[in-house]
Each structure stands twice: as C-alpha cells, then as structure tokens.
Design a protein around this nucleic acid. Structure first.
Lengths: 341, 341
DNA sequence: TCACGTCACTGAACCGGGTAAGCAAGCTCG
DNA sequence: CGAGCTTGCTTACCCGGTTCAGTGACGTGA
C-alpha cells in the first residue's frame, strides 16, 4: 500500500502542494472553501505527515529520548525506574509525544547516543538520570545544545534545569521518626556512592544522626540490587553492636532486607525496624508492610517530561523542586524492644 | 552548534557529496585513498547521518514501536511488562535499534497509532501484545503491510508471525503438581477474559481438572490488578467449600492474594497453597516465597524483537514456540492439612 | 591504433515536507 | 480613477541524504 502524500492531495484538489500545506497547517493563504475541500480529501485518503520529511525541514520530531545506563535485563526489576517511565509516558501520551528508550552499557556509550540522536535529529530532547559527581554528560549536552532535563539532582546539572526533591529532608524525617520511637543505632543500606543523590543522602544521614546525638551513622553501599542488600543486611545484623533500625535506599533492597532478618531469626518490627526509600505496591503487600519514604514517582517523571516539553517548545524553564518523600508508617517500624519496656 | 552534513565533508575533501555518500556507505565508486580521506574527515568533524534525510529516501529508521494499551501509571506496577520490555531492549540495543513506546487509551487509539507510525514512516515494525478474540488490529496491520510480530498467541494472529509459549502445558503442570500434593479443590484468579491467552488458560484449566477428576474448576476473572485479586481471593476464601489451592494469573495478584490470606487468618501454605503465574524477584522475596510458573520473560521479549528485526531485514520468519513456563516449587505450596495427616 | 571497458567521480533529480517571494484579481480609499 | 492593500494562490528553492545516468581519463586487447 502506497503512503499518500501532499502531492496526491494537491492533484486531487487541483491546487498546488503549497496550498495543501497551508490548508493542513492552519495557515492563512487559502480560502475557507479550499481548506475544507483539502482537509476532506486528506481525511478520505488517510494522509498523515511523513515525519522524516517534516524533520528534514527542521520541524520537531515529537519524540523525546532516554538513554538508560544499566543492564537491560535488570530494568524490569526496578519499580522506581518503571514508575518513572510510566509517569513520563503519561505526560507524553497526553501531548502525543513518543518516548524512545535506548539501553546503553556505559557512560561513553550514553554520550555517543546523545551525539547520535542530536546529529540524526532523532529526538527533540532528552531526560537525564542518575547524575554523578562532575558528570561528563552535562558539558556534552550543553555544547550540543540538545534540550535536556536532569532528573533528581539539585546541583551539578550545570545550565540544564532539573526536577528534584529534597533527599535531605526526607532522610531527616525518617531518622527523626525512628529516633522518636527510641532507636539509637540506625544503619543505612545505600545505593552506589558515586551517584550524586546517594552522596546527598549520606551526608544528610550523617548530619541528622549527629544532631540527634545518635550512634555514629553507618552507611553500607551496594549496587541497589536485592542480592547486594541481603549481603549488607546480613553483615549489619551480625555485628556485635547491631542496629535496631535500617534505612534502605530503595524498596527492592528493603524487601530483601526483610527476608534476611526473617532468616536470621530477627522479627520485624520487634527486633528490627525497617524503612524503605521509595514506596511501591509491593512494599505494601509484604508482611509486615513496609514503612516507606513515599513519593509520587510517576508525577515526578511527569513533571520532568512537562518541563522538557516546555523547553522544546521554546518556553524558558527553571529547575523545579518537587515534593520531598514523606514517611508512611506501616508495620515494619516500632519501638525497639530494649527501650519499649 | 551546527550539525555537520555530507556537504561539509565534501567541501573539505574537495569532492562532490555523492563521492562522500559512496565512501561512507562502503559502496564502490571511490578510490580507497579518497575513501580513507573522507572517512577521516567525517570522524574528525563528528558527522552522523541525519536519520530524517535517510528515512526520506526510503531507508529504515532503526526504530521499532510498541503501543501499550493500559493506563500509563499502572505500567510501572507490572513486572511482566517491564521484564518483557527489558528483554526487547536488550536485543534491540545489541543491534543499535531504539524502541519507541506509546501509551494509548483504547483499541481505536492503538490502531490510529499504527496508521500514523506507518504513514509517518516512524518505525520499521511493531510488536503487538495482548491479542483478543478476532482482534481488529491484525487486519489493519496486514493491510498496511507494516512489519509486525505478535507476542503471546499461537493462533488468531492471521498472517503475522508470533512468539508464544504453551499456556496449556504450564497450567497442566501446575494443576498436576497441586493434585499430586493432595489438593482437590483448586481455584484460579485469572486476568481479563477477553484476552486470548486468558481464554486458552481457562480452557486448559477446566480440561485438566476434569481429567484429574478434581472438583469443578472455578476461575474468577479480574483486571490483573492487586486490588481486584484481593477482592477475588476474599470471595473465594469465604465460600463454604473453599479451595485449598489458588492459581493466580500473575505475580502481583498472587502477592495480593497472599496478603489477604494472612489477613483472614489462613496461613500459607498450611491452609492455602498459592501458585503464581510468572515469576519475579518479588515473588522470591515475600515470605513464604511463592511457588511460581516461571519463564524467562526477557528472553521471550528478546525472541520477539529478534524475529521482528529479521522480518524488517527481509528475512522470512515463522512463528516460534518458546519454552513453556515451568513450575518452581517454593514455600507457598504444601500438602493440604486435611490430607496431610 | 582504435574500440571497448573499467575506474573514479560528478550533475541532476528525487524523497515529502517546509518557507519566502511573487503575482494576479478584487477591494478600499484618497 | 489609480495607488495600495488584502486575498488566494503559484513558482522556486531548501532540508540532507540516495540513486541514476552520465563523463572524462586511463588501461587493455585485437
């Protein structure tokens, strides 16, 4: 089946293809009668603009890109990421933009993808996640002039606007809550230390533990996987001076930690309180349900997407501080036994 | 920053842009010396082909599309889908194809997206999921001549090839296992009945229950959500002749069912055995860990992607039957109490 | 030595949209 | 009544690639 073009419409309508262009784009230059006729014909033969031809003339592609730097096969296991994407999708879908995903192996590949997308004019803009210290992607994107929004970092994004939420205040809320329950030894199982938001959280965690005069904050870094978290939890629970509460940097790790506690004979929340960062359906479904630092991740992705679309459409955009995560107490936290009685 | 074009290279090399085209595409028509020179210049100024221009001349776009018909915000909560996408991504990434996702509200919107992608020449092919009875998408895709692969249906895909795995044999394996443990009343909490694979499973479930002379098979349809599953489970457990084992059509529903059983005072697996269809990290993390019908979903998506790429590249493709799901016994299944002693 | 073929390369046209500029007809106004 | 504006349309050319049909220079074989 041959794709209909503007030339086909022009032929049928007995006008030039420019008249067709004007008519279909709502520009002045054709009479209402002609416009109606042209639009009727376009409808009839099922015309749609060829995106390649449009893009060639500098029009936007109505596609935005995300390069995901992680093993493709682990993607499905990360609720945060998938919720973020679903939020992005929701915002894009409402404006009929499409999302192009490309999984990349490392930072160089990611940068190469941005350069390729830019020079191929494949996307109108990109969403950037997981900022690192002195992230080399930032200067590349700035130099290319590719529209971009950084997700999850209040600083370090250079001239690129970002959407972020205060990790520090969320950490504070969690630790203050645990301290109020009577916990004095609080540990944290964190994500990769080279990520900016991990660093921010660690710093805030240290600060609040000092401020509340708790035992020195212990943070065990992991790669965000359940397996790594299980190992870290085991190690923490084996120490002589074991913590009575553990904060996990995501929900998958918290669930893994919960399982380890059970295996080792510690009951949650009596012997160990657990707080998950980032909520998900699943943290509500496990028993006990997990006390979590909950935030609306899809909304977060949606805000980033909307900001990017604004930039793409030439509107200026300032960084946006989203709602910080808030503590939702559930069954996995309680007063520690030693203090409770 | 201006994007470099072939004309820029041609100017620098002192040749015509046609010579550049030949050189960069490995076609004959230029001397080796010139070719080297041209390629060096292209490298130096960071040239990449403009995908729009290429597409305009009929070249493939190196992008494949998936239209997802579900509320964008629930996407993140469905491990199956996300694992499928991650498998697709893994295969595409290895061949430098990108994946374009578009969330749509209903079937008409989905069909409109296919038509638009086709007439815009936006994707080289599409992956189609969740086939229904007499699915109207099939004739549309056939007529358009858009390359497509159907995921998860052995029939009903018309002339389009599909990648599928035998739901019937997996159901049989699960029911036979439960029957061998001594269960005689087995219920099933299924997905949407209008989906082809739900129908196939229901039929197989009925058949195997009859064959093994168990109590009549009861299937409660849901919308695949945890909430709906919780309701269905509650209903099943309230009946006088309550089942001793429940089969769930996905893992999210099984976890929700597990929680409901706990709330209602039934312990798993002593009072109730639970089998989840589709495994995920999370079914292994809950306590008790869920006995599951496990299959390699990312591989499944990868196979579909590979088949689609074959078709796009002009190779003929036959439907592929993938490995059926296999039962992984874990802590959520046991002999029923009444029979065990 | 001349016809023929190959090599290395070029000009022009094309893909399907876009915009700028031009132009005739009709209207308004001084 | 003619200058000047608006309306409605056209021609011309651009975007950045690809492809086809040459074309001159050179080598080869009879």
């Amino acid at each position: 089946m041959k794709r209909p073009t503007m030339a086909d419409i022009a032929r049928r309508a007995g006008v030039s293809k420019v008249a067709v262009s004007y008519a279909l784009n709502g520009q002045s230059g054709v009479s209402d009668a002609t416009r109606q006729r042209i639009m009727a014909i376009a409808e009839e033969i099922g015309w749609n603009p060829n995106s390649a031809a449009r893009a060639l003339s500098g029009a936007p592609t109505h596609t935005i890109g995300m390069a995901l730097r992680r093993p493709a096969r682990t993607l499905g296991a990360e609720p945060f990421f998938m919720e973020l994407i679903s939020g992005v999708e929701a915002e894009l879908a409402s404006r009929s933009y499409a999302l192009t995903l490309q999984v990349v192996a490392d930072q160089d590949a990611e940068i190469a993808v941005y350069k390729r997308w830019w020079s191929e004019r494949r996307v109108d803009g990109v969403l950037v996640c997981d900022l690192r210290l002195d992230d080399p992607r930032i200067p590349v994107l700035e130099e290319l002039g590719l529209a971009a929004v950084v997700i999850g970092a209040s600083e370090g994004s250079g001239s690129l606007p970002s959407v972020w939420s205060s990790d520090a205040s969320a950490i504070e809320e969690a630790v203050e809550y645990l301290a109020a329950l009577g916990h004095r030894g609080i540990a944290r199982v964190s994500g990769m230390p080279e990520l900016l938001h991990t660093a921010v959280r660690t710093e805030a965690f240290d600060a609040v533990c000092r401020r509340l005069d708790l035992e020195p904050a212990v943070t065990v870094p992991t790669d965000y996987s359940g397996e790594d978290s299980a190992r870290a939890t085991r190690r923490l629970l084996m120490t002589r001076n074991r913590p009575t509460a553990i904060l996990y940097d995501n929900d998958v790790m918290a669930i893994a930690g919960l399982a380890v506690a059970g295996e080792m004979g510690f009951s949650v929340p009596e012997d160990l309180s657990i707080v998950a960062w980032d909520d998900s359906v699943l943290s509500q479904l496990v028993r006990p349900a997990l006390t979590a630092m909950s935030r609306d991740i899809p909304a977060y992705g949606g805000h980033a997407a909307r900001m990017l679309l604004d930039i793409v459409n030439g509107e200026p955009a300032d960084s946006l501080e989203d709602e910080p995560a808030h503590l939702i107490p559930r069954g996995s936290t309680a007063r520690p036994k030693t203090v409770g009685r």
